[in-house]
């Protein structure tokens, strides 16, 4: 089966603390921190968007491999904040990364699991022999309405996964679970999304994440203790921690892939940026379970095992996830609303 040949992530350096947002809306930051388990989140700079974030993540993935770029036969970008409504992000990336023009490309959408849907498509193309290698990217610069609970979590970041044969982490299996669930949506032309409040928990996130994970363990005949790392979609810090516990995973298996408490929810990159952080330290033989969730709703599940080729992976050629997490530029709420276009400028 196909495998991960390389990977890379990008997190904008600007960050805002939960306290800074809470104070504008008269909320107690301690309630937010203990309720959502989010301390801070990333904020894209005024000149950053899904294209620039995807490009930096993909460049980090390309730096870690000596693979000839002309052997990349597909590039798919999953996001819910593509810069254009019509005009693909993926075609701009072909030029920005210097890939061959003989390439399959498209933009994907499925709330927060568009990036993993892209991964599954690339895996299928590699497995069928249609392409040798392909790149799947999940990136977002999501917005929460001012004062909405989402404002504490909606952040920005991206991860690129280069998939091919003979990579350093093998895909043992992948599966998806999909139902029509109206937990979170945004109509065309609307700036901010709407959500079903408490409805986002049990019938949406937990149902799809838990079912997906259980179906994978049934299929593979595995138990939680067979995995060295487990990564779950993380709209906040609380949901993935609870899902892990309900499934029988312990903190040790989960902590390395849990980033939302520090950088917020990167949406289409949420689970795979956790995977990226795990791949930054995983060793040969490590087994990894990854469960992505997208509102609307569905889950994409991946069972992976790191192999011996990890020893020749050039990780140090690109900045790892924690290295980027620990390199913030703190901003205040005024700068945040300016950067996120939440104030109306003349001529804008």
């Amino acid at each position: 089966m196909s495998s991960i040949v390389s990977y890379g992530s990008y997190i904008p350096r600007f960050r805002i603390r939960t306290e800074e947002i809470a104070k504008e809306w008269g909320e107690n930051p301690e309630n937010i921190k203990s309720g959502l388990f989010i301390h801070s989140k990333s904020v894209p700079g005024p000149d950053e968007d899904v294209l620039t974030i995807s490009a930096e993540a993909a460049k980090n993935a390309l730096r870690r491999t000596d693979l000839d770029k002309s052997k990349i036969g597909a590039i798919y970008v999953g996001s819910e904040s593509h810069p254009y409504a019509v005009k693909p992000t993926s075609s701009i990336l072909v030029e920005a990364l210097g890939l061959t023009y003989d390439i399959h490309s498209a933009d994907y959408e499925f709330a927060c699991k568009a990036g993993t849907a892209a991964m599954q498509n690339v895996m299928a193309m590699v497995d069928s022999g249609q392409i040798e290698n392909g790149m799947a990217i999940g990136a977002d610069t999501s917005q929460g309405a001012p004062g909405d609970a989402l404002e504490y979590s909606a952040s920005a970041g991206g991860t690129a996964i280069l998939i091919g044969k003979n990579g350093f982490a093998d895909f043992n299996a992948t599966l998806s679970f999909t139902t029509d669930t109206p937990d979170f949506w945004r109509r065309e032309g609307e700036k901010y999304p709407s959500h079903g409040g408490r409805f986002t928990g049990e019938p949406a996130y937990f149902k799809h994440v838990l079912t997906g994970a259980k179906k994978m363990m049934d299929k593979m005949g595995t138990k939680p203790e067979d995995y060295d790392y487990a990564i779950f979609h993380q709209p906040n810090g609380k949901f993935p921690t609870r899902a892990a516990k309900m499934l029988g995973f312990n903190d040790e298996q989960v902590k390395d892939g849990l980033l939302t408490p520090y950088i917020g929810n990167t949406y289409s990159s949420s689970m795979i940026i956790g995977l990226s952080a795990v791949l930054d330290k995983a060793e040969s033989g490590d087994r990894i379970l990854g469960v992505a969730f997208g509102s609307g709703a569905g889950s994409d599940v991946f069972d992976m095992t790191v192999n011996d080729r990890v020893k020749s992976l050039k990780r140090e050629r690109a900045k790892g996830v924690m290295e980027q997490v620990n390199n913030p530029i703190w901003i205040d709420y005024a700068t945040y609303v300016k950067y996120r276009g939440k104030i109306i400028m003349r001529g804008a």
Partner: peptide, 11 residues
């Protein structure tokens, strides 16, 4: 070098 938005022709 980093790739960024340089400008846009209005909205």
């Amino acid at each position: 070098a980093t790739l960024r938005k340089v400008r846009s022709e209005g909205k």
